[in-house]
Nucleic acid binder design. Structure first.
Lengths: 208, 208, 208, 208
DNA sequence: CATGAATGAGGATTCATTCAT
DNA sequence: CATGAATGAATCCTCATTCAT
């Protein structure tokens, strides 16, 4: 129903998201998109990995773009929801902020492909129609973080000489960019990462 | 710099790097690469913008990849050199670090296209031969920053419970990612950005 | 009628031609073929309209082409038979011709889809094997009309300076082409059409 | 400038219609479109016939559809203009009508491919955007003919009991449909065809 | 320096058809 | 009877690149 083309609002089978095959294919696609980049990944790459012919993918998805959309939508909706819960369950702005940061690293750990995708393809996404939801979602996430930062400034938890909008951007980029170098199977654990990040964020690099 | 690929042992005319047309074309290419992404930019896009036919580009450059290489090499060589100077001229690790951060924002301001390119196309670049220089250069930059961070830890300027490798990555990503949202013509000036960044980096977000 | 193609020596279930579902499907197919053109109509279009999956169509018909064939054969056999009756029951060539024309408009009214199909897809049909019957049938129809026209010339009913073969073609095309613009549900009735056509055919456009 | 897609209003080279190669290719395309039908003709068919690769066609035309458009536009514009001249130069409605009919057969003779295309692909065309000009042009042609027919009725040259709109359609279809069976290289000449057609149109089939 | 014509290797997508369940 | 997953071939189109002029 979100199809905006005038031609064929014909839905593909198995759109109920219940198809196991569908989920498998999406996972493969997410991994490849994340690794090679969306436009460097061909539908044949995906199909090959799935052991089928490229044309057969179109039994499940109406286009390559649709796959990307579905992956991102799933990730972003979940993220937003979780962020809401975290903030709602936090007693103080500081607790809220820490929760947001910690969960971000968890998301990077657990959904590396989707995070990578989001991190790397924003430029592309902003030019695609049907992807307004990405920007919309980003705006909501930003609103959550900035609300926390401003609340903390009001309560005196956070410093007054730092602009929330800038802090948000610096923190966001520092945190999410780690998806590019973090290795889920390496020795550096994601919670260690979170703690180091929080240490730096809380009291800075300077000693004493 | 000899061509290492097996493909094109072909000479290009007027490659004295002094050609004004060449510089113009590179600038156009850099801007387009940065805006649309390298693989989303066609040689025709570049040629169109330059007012010539796509085939004519090959009078100046032997391939699209060559253009990318030249843009990046120019940027990275300059950056590395500047970083060296900054560290060499700094009295303390803290002064060095601040200088590195400040200059990074200056570079973002002055060479937005090249920075964007570097920021967005690393994934692609790592798979291309002929682009080892990028990784090599990145390694050297990293070495400079980490040396500063470690020195600061030794001198007691910087805290001991933060791992230099991680601090480097967090700071690097926070700083360079700003190229994605920084507007050189906007009201927010790049030196303001640098100061806010340093404020946060030095003593953190928490009040008191 | 045995299948003459080398392709599919395959039996289809419930082909007794009596199946109600079959008739339904054929009607849908005829309508779509007529509206969008045979090659612009996909088996999925037909299946969609019928509320089943495209693969399921193959329970009823061995191919898309088979559907076309069946539709056309039904129409053309009926038409030829009716033309025979009309001529046989006519007292004079003129009466025969008028009957042929009138019935043609009736057929257009009642079997618009099949007539459209025949009218629009002849070019395609002539290249398909298994569709010789169309040309064969066309030849027989032509023979009937031309016999009437020649007989009329002999009896002095029709003018001598008009070549029957040409008159047949002009009349045929004028009559059958009306399927493209005739609207069965509009205010212009098919018998009015027939009378106007006959008026023009009989004594021409010039006054007095 | 007529491109309605939002993507690339980039014009192809040689749009000046002056390219000889372009004209050659259009002629080949017209012939194939007319013979096999537009959608049955592949770009490779055209390229093969031209002795180039299919992709090379896109150096000259931005799409298969564009080729069709150009062919039709050229034909229809010329036709309309000629029709205007004919009517303007005719002393009486009858003379005008005869001129229109005669020229139509000439057009069929000289531009068989374009006429065929127009005759056979109207159904398709009406669904394509960018092809409104076809309907627009058809409306104008119809207006010309009907004006002549009505004028003739007023002057008493033509009968009063025939509706101009219907006469137009019958004549139009009888005339233009002949493109399907007329052979420019055969023994039946196009002017003979015109005379026979006019004979029938003027005073009808009935003797005396 | 630039044009204009062409190459050739893909790339996404469509679609009739098959077949196990 | 119908589903749902898949095939395989074809289709339109893109794009970096070459090269004679």
């Amino acid at each position: 129903m979100t199809e905006s083309t005038t031609k064929k609002p014909r839905k593909r089978p198995g759109n109920g998201a219940g198809s196991a095959r569908r989920a498998e294919l999406l996972e493969i696609a997410a991994r490849l998109f994340a690794t090679r980049g969306y436009s460097q990944t061909t539908v044949r790459d995906i199909a090959d990995e799935a052991g089928i012919l490229s044309g057969s993918l179109y039994h499940h998805f109406s286009s390559k773009e649709t796959m990307l959309e579905e992956i991102l939508r799933g990730f972003m909706d979940g993220l937003l929801e979780r962020f809401h819960e975290i903030v709602a369950g936090a007693a103080t702005p500081r607790e809220a902020l820490d929760g947001l940061v910690r969960y971000s690293f968890t998301a990077i750990h657990e959904q590396q492909a989707a995070v990578s995708l989001y991190q790397n393809e924003i430029a592309l996404l902003s030019r695609l129609p049907d992807f307004d939801f990405v920007e919309e979602n980003s705006r909501r996430v930003e609103a959550i973080w900035i609300a926390v930062l401003e609340e903390g400034r009001r309560t005196g938890d956070f410093r007054e000489d730092l602009q929330p909008a800038l802090v948000y951007r610096f923190v966001r980029d520092a945190v999410w960019s780690s998806v590019r170098w973090y290795n889920p199977d390496g020795t550096m654990r994601h919670d260690t990462l979170a703690e180091q990040c929080l240490l730096l964020l809380h009291t800075g690099l300077l000693a004493g």
